[in-house]
Design a protein around this nucleic acid. Structure first.
Length: 271
DNA sequence: CGGCATGTTTCGCC
DNA sequence: AGGCGAAACATGCC
């Protein structure tokens, strides 16, 4: 489920947490750095941000002398199947590749706050629920390797990043060091809208094509965000699985593994 | 049962 | 050295 759009939805869901203090934390130590709970408990939540697919909860610890201490962001990374439940509200209902079940045993990081959510004092403020356990929580994650964020992209920046790579265009879009926040569904979606084949070499794009790709990202992502995320595009999970006809020209869609992931595209209009 | 899944990291080969 | 592709990770579902 989680690509940059889901992270953005969850970032927004986290805004009511600002101003609260983390008073307890339960964490699966296999997905957290050593001492995570000890570090975060007692800290004040001062802000929430998103960079690429990462949701960041900014926290501030009080020093023993009473002053405000170090500011530390908590990083929430969702892997393939992680999702966030904030104040008891699952902003995104269905995991497309899971049953939609919400088992407690899949809770990998649970945070309680003071004041608690209005829905109940025993309800966690934050639950990172992840059956497959590929998600992570981090403290002050290093985000320096990330490329331009999906909501900040410009044609010159994208063109420059692409020009340095000889890998498949689709693989380059999945590389978080090129564009931060695109995942497998969004990458196929923006390629469909910009009429570019996923097989193209990244460095074969001319400026006109880079502009087309940029325009697709800037136009389609806000629409899909409003609709509920990465699954709401033309190449929805249903369409991908059925490998139906292209909505634009009625031609059969094609499927292949590119950059280690399944790409779906229309060979009739994507070149 | 085999295969596949919205992701990231690591290993080995140029 | 650094780019690139494949494998590994971990678990559930069809």
């Amino acid at each position: 489920m989680p690509e940059g759009l889901e992270a953005e939805i969850w970032r927004g869901a986290c805004e009511p947490l600002v101003g609260r203090t983390i008073v307890a934390a339960r964490v699966d130590e296999r997905i957290a750095p050593a001492g995570f709970a000890e570090v975060v408990v007692g800290s004040l939540i001062t802000g929430v941000r998103r960079v690429g697919k990462v949701v960041l909860i900014d926290t501030q610890r009080e020093t023993p002398s009473g002053g405000s201490g170090d500011s530390l962001p908590i990083g929430l990374h969702f892997g393939m199947t992680g999702r966030l439940v904030v104040d008891g509200h699952a902003m995104i209902g269905q995991l497309s590749y899971a049953s939609g079940r919400d088992a407690q045993e899949w809770d990998r990081c649970v945070l309680f706050t003071e004041p608690p959510p209005t829905v109940g004092a025993d309800v966690p403020a934050v639950r990172l629920n992840d059956p497959r356990r590929l998600g992570r929580v981090t403290i002050d994650p290093d985000l320096s390797g990330l490329g331009v964020d999906i909501f900040e992209i410009t044609a010159p920046v994208l063109a420059a990043a692409m020009a340095r790579r000889s890998i498949a265009l689709k693989a380059a879009l999945l590389d978080q060091g090129v564009v931060a926040g695109l995942g497998n569904l969004l990458a196929d979606e923006v390629l469909w809208w910009s009429a570019l084949s996923p097989h193209r070499r990244a460095n074969s794009l001319d400026l006109r094509e880079a502009k087309r790709l940029t325009a697709a990202i800037r136009r389609r992502l806000p629409i899909m965000l409003r609709r509920g995320g990465s699954t709401t595009g033309v190449l929805s999970p249903d369409v991908r699985a059925a490998l139906g006809a292209c909505e634009r020209d009625g031609q059969p869609l094609q499927r292949a593994t590119i950059g280690g992931r399944t790409a779906v595209w229309c060979p009739a209009h994507q070149h």
